[in-house]
Write a protein that binds this DNA or RNA. Structure first.
Lengths: 216, 216
DNA sequence: GTCTATAAACAGATAGAC
DNA sequence: GTCTATCTGTTTATAGAC
């Protein structure tokens, strides 16, 4: 039986353990999560973690690999044609970011994934290196290419690269600080409707930022 | 001897324990940090944690209190005069955010504090409630007042409140993801010079965002 | 592959000397 | 206030039955 196929739903002990790992590592932290707790959530026993992943740390790495795999699927980046007009590039950025924002803010799955990776980043985990080399840098480079075309700046200029990071930061903040935002906005929670409202504001910011990139 | 005065440098066992706690909880996480490790860094013994704070969890709370105290000092918010002209409000926002960005990105102390609070937020810790009620909401409200005056929108409108969060998100992203940013930018680390470069870009974004707030 | 039972290490809290 | 020694519970990893 294939163990690493992505098309299988979370069936099988291995996949159940990874799902439980991402969820618990993300919400409680790696160290605060016991293997017994993971096994219980995955409806299996503690020994299966050692059997499938060699130990708790092996499960952590498997969770990192699944993070990259899942996000690559969501981003589904296509190579950027070099002869794009600025308005076409801007439209592609709009559409792409709208989809990403919808996923990051709208899907419960994304909340777990972002929390998980956030902790890995905070701990400067080697998993971050893998994810960075695996798809983060390439994705950022592609977005910079579009951003450069849309704003009329050199795609790999400092201004463009930093602006792209800034915009990503805006998105992630609402995912990470969702409870703080909800409280300040008087929302019960950050649901689909609220996510759409945030997305609208962020896309306005996107246009505003595209208009001034490089005009320091 | 006063135990909670802020003007004393990190002298004394109590202050040393809090400093060690913020640093270790921030970088490794609360659960991953042992009391023995904290005591070693504070150059004291394990039992002193129970003596001064009642236990590991008491130390966590003391760290949260110090976070609020320290950041309140940095923000030093003054009440916003209601008869400010838009350009004056904009100038105040520029100056205030420039100082905050300098602190968040430039001071090593801020790295620990942000990491610490980030983890508390991820775990939905009750400390977040205290910090939110203690100074987060008031600060956000003050910034919204300035932002509203500068952009010509109602200060407590959804657009203004969300835009302020967005801008804060941009700042925090560079602090949290500093290693990723540094790698992508080809920097050795995120030092003073790099912080200034980021600040320049962010302040351009501030102007761009102020110009379009509410224009959905 | 799955599971129970156990081992060896480690945690936080505390008693009591000084 | 500070420190050492120790208690009690929990952790991960693993051996071995099925």
């Amino acid at each position: 039986m294939a163990q690493t196929s992505a098309d299988t739903p979370p069936e099988g002990t291995r996949a159940a353990l990874i799902a439980a790992g991402v969820a618990l590592f993300g919400s409680k932290g790696f160290a605060a999560t016991s293997t017994r707790e993971i096994a219980a959530r995955a409806k299996t026993n503690v020994a299966s973690i050692a059997y499938h992943f060699g130990g708790k740390d092996g499960l952590r790495q498997a969770c990192g690999a699944q993070f990259a795999q899942r996000l690559t699927a969501v981003l589904q980046q296509a190579p950027v044609p070099a002869d794009l007009r600025p308005d076409q590039a801007r439209a592609l950025l709009h559409a792409g970011f709208a989809r990403v924002i919808g996923f990051i803010l709208g899907q419960a799955e994304a909340a777990e994934m972002v929390s998980f990776m956030l902790r890995e980043v905070s701990e400067n985990s080697p998993i971050v290196d893998q994810v960075y080399a695996g798809f983060m840098e390439g994705t950022h480079r592609n977005v910079c290419a579009l951003w450069g075309l849309a704003s009329g700046c050199a795609p790999e200029s400092d201004a463009v690269r930093l602006s792209v990071f800034s915009f990503i930061g805006q998105i992630l903040y609402f995912r990470i600080g969702n409870r703080i935002v909800a409280r300040r906005m008087g929302w019960d929670a950050l649901g689909q409707g609220e996510a759409a409202q945030i997305a609208a504001v962020l896309l306005v910011h996107l246009d505003a930022m595209l208009g001034t990139t490089g005009k320091v």
